[in-house]
Amino acid sequence: MARRLSRRVVTSFVAERLQEGDKSVVKQLAAYLVTTRQIRMLALYVRDIESSLAKKGDVIADVTTAFSLSAETKKHINAFVAAETGALSVSLREHVKSEVLGGLRLHIPGKELDTTVQRQLTTLRTQLKKA
C-alpha cells in the first residue's frame, strides 16, 4: 500500500504539475486516492488544488446564474475576477439554476459574491421577520 502524504503537499504538487501542462498528474492523483482509500476526500483535494492554483495565478471561478451567460457577460466576469484576485488566467465553471431567479453567484477560492434575486429576497424576508 502506498504511503499517505500530507494533503497540502499533494495538492501543491498537483497544482504545480497542472500549471506546467502535465495533465497526466490527474490520473496519478486518482490512483493515489484509490490506493490510499481517500476517494471520499476528493472534493477537499479539488478545492485545495484550486486554492493552490489561485495562489499561483490560475483562478477557477464557479458562476451560478438563472440563464446561460453571454460572451460579453463572461468577459465582464473574467475581468472582475482578475481584478479581485490578481489572477493571470481565469476559468469559469458555469452552473445554470433557474431558482436563483436572476443575478449571479460567484465563488472563487476564499471569496463569494452573491447578488442573486433569490438571495436578496431571502435577506429581505429575514430582515422583515426580525423587524
Binding site: T73, H76, F80, L104, L113
Partner: peptide, 12 residues
C-alpha cells in the same frame, strides 16, 4: 435573459 445580463453587469 437580457435584463438579467444587465443586472449582472451592474452587480459586478
Amino acid at each position: 435573459k437580457k435584463p438579467d445580463e444587465a443586472l449582472i453587469a451592474e452587480a459586478l
